[in-house]
Design a binder for these strands. Structure first.
Lengths: 325, 325
DNA sequence: TTGAAAGCGCTAACAC
DNA sequence: GTGTTAGCGCTTTCAA
């Protein structure tokens, strides 16, 4: 059976408000009664109805996590899986629920708006690249605490990210250390802040090393766009002997395919990648890859969000270090 | 602003019950009023408070999706990501919410029990391998509609799965077609139904072909267990010229590593895998892989669950075909 | 067709 | 310390 607070109160011969106080650890109920009630509730396996609680408290004890719609195919399969797992762990600790929000392709903003207006969540974790101006306005207007996973030029806000520039510098530096002098850079979408920062890191190192050769190409992550752009790039830069790729996942495989097609000798070619995707390490050539502390970031996302919900003052920006792997 | 039904009623000069009826498409309100109310609600961007609705209707309009706790690292990163994406799509269509349940390591059943008792969800999708007897009892006792992704010896219930035996037969058959005659089989945990079925498929084909050589080894999916068991296996079966691996993901990479270490000539060795993981196709040797219609399964999971929630009678078992890729 | 009112299960303010 | 009561915002029944 599934009991209500009324039934528990009746069985304990007390008022339901007393039960409520006892269960919520509030004062105003003597130790003896409290113990008794707790024991009874335990025995009856009683859990307050979440909807009733939410209605009375104006708080759903649920947080949202927005995930890019193409999660199943995108370059970031592992990335988001780990973020989800880390967030879920924090959510479990606090006996909250985790609402997964995958915006519909047709009307992404609507999906989020519905959830906000229905008051289904107390706060939300948002991938920075996917935040739109309209969503930002919504969160502000309806006073929804939110945390950015990553950063966006769109707004300064509580965020969790890696040190992109430094990471890119490490990777590029490593290529140079290995003797490469004709390093190109392939980036993802230019509008993403991490793209800009990683590109900056790339350029910093080449400038510092007085290397003038530094061709760059941006592209969307889709297979088609990537093919088109990278083929062009490789043909226009025949001296290329290494590549810094500012993103990871399958994007890297697309690019490697092209290098093969274009008859680059992959046993000599240098590849540095801003991601640590397990399968890379099983590939038949050397890839220098950057390890992001994904789990730690997910944990931090959740922690900050909970602090915001509790009206505490969390750190504005949490930046994590990249390591080579 | 965020309006309540009372405010909308007041603005429309009608009773809130009328607003409720109008919005929920119930009869008992004249067309004119209905239109007016709908228009007003639209203009005001009104959405009924989900908790209040849930409380009144005994229905949260939220479904749960249980994901194995080690999703971030497990062999199935892509698998679950695609299931999630597919389920989310169906959930969005119906204006439901998706609650992601990642059971805590310490007390997985508790995590699920809490959510059930709190009445946070109307139904739940459960990975078959992870269903325990206690969870099964809970779902039954509390009358929670649930759908199994996969099958389990534990119970006969609404389920969505692939034709494991046939898939395994295809893969093994393909190895034979390529001339391999010393094929071994590495499986995951023996208790999993899919392990048993795939193993059966493997044996079927060898029997049919009158091949007596058919060594088999089961192992847990962890790196350590896999290493230990597979090294033993390879050494004990020196004639081995091919392997049918009854699972996929990183598990396959672990095994390939060992084959290399044991000095198998991978350019000759045959490998068939019950999974289609993108990175396989970028490996420097041939892998025969099986493609599972993951997205379709996720969609079906959700559809069946919604039918159960609506008290319709969905198909008991949905089996999908495997194809080689 | 319309609206008043009860009730869903809980919390919290306020008497006692 | 304890209980009564009034909501929270909705749905649903029932009387008008």
């Amino acid at each position: 059976m599934n009991y209500t607070i009324n039934e528990i109160a009746e069985m304990a011969h007390v008022a339901k408000s007393t039960v409520s106080k006892a269960l919520n650890g509030q004062k105003g109920v003597c130790d003896e009664k409290r113990k008794e009630i707790l024991k009874l509730a335990g025995k009856m396996n009683y859990r307050p109805n979440a909807s009733a609680r939410a209605l009375a408290q104006h708080r759903s004890e649920t947080i949202g996590l927005i995930i890019p719609a193409d999660v199943g195919y995108s370059l970031s399969g592992i990335y988001w899986a780990e973020i989800i797992a880390a967030v879920a762990e924090e959510v479990n600790k606090r006996n909250y629920n985790l609402l997964l929000i995958i915006p519909s392709k047709e009307n992404p903003t609507k999906t989020i708006e519905n959830i906000i207006l229905k008051k289904s969540i107390d706060g939300v974790i948002v991938p920075a690249e996917q935040l739109t101006a309209e969503e930002l306005r919504m969160f502000t207007e309806f006073n929804i605490p939110f945390v950015l996973q990553g950063r966006t030029p769109l707004c300064k806000h509580y965020c969790v990210d890696v040190r992109n520039t430094e990471g890119a510098e490490m990777l590029t530096g490593e290529l140079i250390k290995k003797g490469y002098r004709h390093i190109g850079c392939i980036t993802g979408p230019e509008s993403f802040q991490y793209t800009q920062e990683r590109l900056e890191g790339f350029k910093n190192v080449l400038r510092r090393e007085n290397i003038e050769y530094a061709p760059v190409k941006s592209t969307l992550y889709s297979l088609e766009e990537t093919r088109k752009n990278v083929i062009d790039f490789v043909r226009n830069n025949p001296e290329l002997d290494a590549l810094f790729i500012s993103a990871g996942g399958e994007f890297v495989f697309y690019i490697i395919d092209i290098l093969k097609e274009e008859r680059k000798d992959l046993s000599k070619f240098g590849i540095a990648v801003f991601d640590d995707y397990r399968p890379f390490h099983y590939m038949p050539f050397n890839i220098i890859s950057a390890k992001q502390p994904i789990k730690q970031m997910g944990t931090q996302d959740a922690k900050i969000l909970f602090q915001l919900i509790e009206r505490e003052e969390p750190p504005t920006m949490s930046l994590f270090d990249i390591s080579l792997s």
